[in-house]
Amino acid sequence: MTSTSEMTYRDALNMALREEMSRDPSVVVWGEDVALYEGAFKVTRGLLAEFGEERIKDTPISENTIVGVAVGAAMGGLRPVAELMTVNFALLAMDQIVNHMAKIRSMFGGQTFLPMVVRMPGGGGSQLAAQHSQSLESYFMHCPGLHIAYPSTPADAKGLLKSAIRDNNPVIFLEHELLYNSTGEVPNDPEFLVPFGQANVIRSGTDVTIVAYARMTILALQAAADLEKEGISCEIVDLRTFSPLDTETIIESARKTGRAVVVEECWRTAGLGGDIAHRIHEACFDTLLAPVKRVAGLDVPMPYSRKIEKICIPRAETIADAVREVVSRKY
């Protein structure tokens, strides 16, 4: 049995950065307030003291250029981990992310890899209003060339971030702001890695498959516990990474249960859940007992009011309702 320690999602990310920086001197962490201030969400706590200001570097408030210099540094032989204060500011960096980070390898005729990670906290639910509560995972998933992770547990946070840093692909690494204080057992092994493209069946069940990620996985677990009391058995597939997407595990589960609900925190329209639901329909059409149902964010800018904000983001109750609908085939 490998040893584990209970720790927060935040500390698991910190552990991953610390271990990878110790292991590989080419790993550097650059971003806004990452050094002395130790990150807006304190993920880089203690790293300046341990690794010095050359490796943990505060940058000016220039998101596009934070990603751009990471692109240049990755071409220049480093493994930069850039931090954007939140995913919302990634919109300022979309040109560097989509036009450069995702494409340089291709446009360079394959001459160079781009071993870089852009970390960004995201998600809603903290009453931060329309411009600071967004879930932009579908934006990134639409772009070929990017690898994308979004962990739901502290152990996955450590294992996926370490894999991301060692990966030769450019990686978008999403972290959920409401999960930073969540706790779980995390392997102490510095070689503990969670590979990209392997979804995790975190709960076995027989009646319905719930496909979820990040905080949506936690809500799905709550919904499944409630539904169990009603005699509905849910299987939950935690995606872990959007790209590569583990379609195989999703389809295998949907074939087994015959029903699926796809949960996403982002806006419903053109959201990644539509793509996943389509993959299930295409592969499992003959064996599905009901059409795949989607649970997603409402198509509005996030309201500032805490009361209304809650309605805009999937909840355990809305997931449970969707499962009940699918199980009873009331469409």
Binding site: V28, G72, A73, L78, D95
Partner: peptide, 18 residues
Amino acid sequence: SVGTHIPHAVGAAMAARY
């Protein structure tokens, strides 16, 4: 793209210095 490689050059200079 117009001027978008300027940050890349800056990043490469940061890498070279490091």
